[in-house]
Design a protein around this nucleic acid. Structure first.
Lengths: 201, 201
DNA sequence: TTTGTAAGTAAACAAACGTTTACTTACTTT
DNA sequence: AAAGTAAGTAAACGTTTGTTTACTTACAAA
């Protein structure tokens, strides 16, 4: 039996991400993708059931999986709160600005009903997505260091500004001066941290 | 000369928004839209140059315009900082949870290169988009009440968690218990406010 | 070295795409 | 009341869509 050509599999995924980032999800077609990857449309269907299957696997496995790994790299849930948040911010920020295509699909994941549903199902099936972060937050709530919120709310407060700053970073890449510097990121990280600390009166 | 039927114009816009919210931008087609609105495809082309023109006008005029108006309703740039932010949060949150279709297109605006470009151009042409908020922030920076950041960064810190919470609100609408309550919103609003205040030591 | 078989290709399928053509309708102006 | 005209329709344009059919290729196992 002829073995799968893994290089072609990788080409499909990376070129699909590139088209989505440059032209949007609405402009990705199977035929365009095949032509850009230098393969027959049929070959895509050997590796993926159909277009939806390709998009979902791209989003969940290729993008979210790698993003989670990058964010959690060298992260210690037992670290002091401010230090832990800083680690997560810097990991996430550096990964995303160096992986523009992945960031683009993450943004699509918040807009497209198809990807949104897939994400919700993944979150339900594997409750431990970004598990160490949940553990980290629970520890700090129980220690009376930060305010209690449901985990989704904690995530919105702590990390959604970071994603917005990545978007601004890319916007400013085409302009003469970048305003999203490493110092900006650290200052913003401190601000969100300060926001959910229980203030010592 | 036969006058334009404004009811049909409104139908095109509202049904387009509905399709985008329910099926995603990638599943909106001119023929599908015409059929759903009970009109001929040609009629859409009387009011819009082409599909891109329709999407951009929907996004900029119909959605962002109305959103800006709702957020700024009864907002006073001279109000105390915490009070002003609270007003903006409540205005925005209530508008978005009552206008699911508008929220969906705003999310697409962050993902789709077409809409993203259109937004950037609008922002460059009319520098006063969300002008009263800029004024409000400048006032509070100059008074030494809040930390200085570029306006885009201020907006990321103050408002991106709110949009994320709206997304969570809709996610939880299909589940037995809503976790994003008015109390949650107020508590989160206080957290982001606390984050950018200059702490009195 | 031959053979079995899944991986891969080129070409095609019907359906749907964005947009236009040819025509009719309804209202304003005279 | 008649004429002029932009709004509107039904049907079609050529192209592209997602997916499949019929065939070839390249490798593992025998």
């Amino acid at each position: 039996m002829r073995p799968k050509n893994l290089i072609k599999e990788e080409a499909i995924r990376s070129i699909a991400l590139q088209i989505i980032a440059d032209e949007g999800l609405e402009n990705l077609s199977m035929q365009k993708l095949a032509k850009a990857a230098g393969i027959s449309p049929r070959t895509i269907y050997i590796k993926y059931e159909n277009k939806e299957d390709l998009l979902i696997k791209l989003f969940i496995e290729e993008v979210l999986g790698a993003y989670e790994k990058a964010v959690l790299k060298n992260f210690d849930p037992a670290a002091p709160f401010a230090e832990g948040v800083r680690k997560l911010w810097l990991n996430g920020f550096h990964y995303l600005i160096n992986n523009r295509h992945a960031f683009a699909l993450i943004q699509h994941g918040k807009a497209s009903p198809l990807l949104n549903r897939a994400y919700q199902q993944k979150n339900i099936k594997e409750g431990d997505f970004f598990g160490p972060i949940q553990q980290f937050l629970t520890l700090n709530v129980e220690a009376g260091i930060i305010k209690y919120f449901p985990q989704e709310v904690h995530r919105a407060l702590l990390f959604s500004p970071m994603l917005d700053l990545v978007a601004e970073y890319f916007d400013y890449q085409t302009r003469p001066q970048q305003i999203i510097t490493p110092e900006t990121i650290l200052a913003c990280c401190e601000a969100v941290t300060q926001g959910i600390l229980i203030s010592k009166k």
